[in-house]
Computed example of a mutant assay.
Amino acid sequence: MTKAGRRIRKIHVWIGVREGTDDDWFRYFDVEGAGAACGFCRDTGMTWFDFDFFSAYFAGEVVDVEHVTGEVAYSEQFDAALGAACEEHGVRQADACFTLIDFDGATHVGRRYHGLTLVGVFEFSA
């Protein structure tokens, strides 16, 4: 499917306040070292995921969620929906977000993943 000659893609957006230390965060995503036993893989039923489609942002401190949502890739195409989704799921403050583009793991909008809530899956064109 295309939009103005561009491919329509989907981006999963998790946002909130991270649990634990920086080391805990990196271990949660350590598919290289832990394989299918990494926390994120266990939580999503995946044995692997492609870091080429992964991005993360750390604010350095807990801030109003709007300061973090603006760092989500392509969010200018769905910023109103992203803001509404954060409000709907009670995410008003955050220190981090992570995203995956065209991810096909077993996810549940509204569920927390290592402290961050999957607030939605949004379409964008690239």
Rank of each mutant, 00 (worst) to 15 (best):
I101F: 06
I15P: 01
F53W: 09
H114C: 04
S75A: 07
V121I: 02
T99Y: 04
A36C: 07
A85N: 01
T99D: 09
T2K: 15
R42H: 04
F53H: 09
R111M: 12
R6G: 06
R112C: 08
L118D: 01
D23L: 12
F26H: 15
R92E: 13
A59R: 06
F54N: 07
E66T: 13
G16Q: 09
R9G: 03
A84W: 03
G110T: 09
M46Q: 15
D95N: 12
K3F: 10
G16I: 01
V91T: 01
F51I: 08
D43F: 01
D50V: 12
R111L: 09
V121T: 01
Y57Q: 04
F40W: 10
F51A: 09
D43Q: 10
F53V: 00
V17A: 03
R92C: 07
A126P: 03
V17R: 09
E123V: 02
Q77G: 06
S55P: 04
W14Q: 03
R27L: 11
Y28P: 02
A85C: 00
F58Y: 15
D30Q: 15
F51S: 11
F53P: 03
F122V: 00
R112L: 11
D52T: 14
Y113M: 10
I11S: 01
L116E: 09
A80P: 11
I15F: 03
R27K: 15
D104R: 15
R7W: 12
V63Q: 12
D24H: 15
D95C: 04
A37M: 07
R7Q: 15
R111V: 03
R6F: 05
D104P: 06
F40E: 01
K3N: 12
V65H: 02
T47E: 12
K3R: 15
H114I: 00
G115H: 06
C97E: 14
D52S: 13
A81L: 01
G120Y: 00
